[in-house]
Design a binder for these strands. Structure first.
Lengths: 110, 110
DNA sequence: GGAATAGTTAGTCATTGACCTAACTATTCC
DNA sequence: GGAATAGTTAGGTCAATGACTAACTATTCC
């Protein structure tokens, strides 16, 4: 299977730590140590999560002096949201079809 | 980290094969071999994906004779959708706050 | 009852993910 | 310039994932 860009996004979302980081970044940019503070994890482990988020394109970072600042890239989250939207549309279409079927059956009863 | 139920859902979504299965099931229930047909994969490998989807609660199955039928459990997908919605709300709140800030700055200029 | 069909179980293997410690580099601040 | 701070790299462990083949069970159909 060819690895579409969406894959990296979904895989990035699959970890609770990373989702919490995204939630935090939803409230505005933050430095590595800011982001790391709420987690018990050793820094290098945490950095791996940040790297994964960044390669998925969900966050971006810039280094200012010895500090690195991360910010959300919300457009990227849309990839996943869009999938859900498509999926829901599909599902709802199907319910409509069932509806139609039931209606037809009811009508042919009389 | 305690494994919340949402975790299993997100992890299940992290694989393209499984997402395609969900898309297929969005168009209605199907048997194991129906579902497996579009994939090059050996059956046992494919079954593992189905099992993962089922333990995540995203699909359910019943066996009828020697055939097993899978169907979508759309309520479960909502867990992930809700996360996105919450995330978007957060993000938009933040944009509003930035807006307010900019407005305030502009006003104090005059 | 025997062959074909549908799914299942068992066992192997390589890769990736999630964590760790130890040691290092680069910047800032006194 | 030396100490403190912020992040980075290297290297290692362990469990889970994604795939395979081979062999098995349960059902249906002739």
């Amino acid at each position: 299977m060819s690895a579409v860009p969406a894959d990296a996004v979904f895989r990035a979302l699959a970890d609770p730590t990373r989702r919490r980081v995204l939630e935090r970044l939803g409230r505005g940019p933050a430095t590595v140590s800011d982001l790391a503070k709420p987690f018990e994890m050793a820094l290098p482990s945490f950095l791996q999560h940040l790297r994964m988020l960044e390669t998925a394109g969900l966050v971006s970072s810039t280094k200012v002096g010895r500090v690195r600042i991360y910010r959300l890239v919300p457009e990227r989250l849309k990839l996943a949201e869009d999938w859900h939207a498509r999926q829901r549309r599909l599902w709802e279409t199907r319910l409509d079809q069932l509806d139609d079927l039931l209606k037809t059956l009811k009508e042919s009863e009389s």
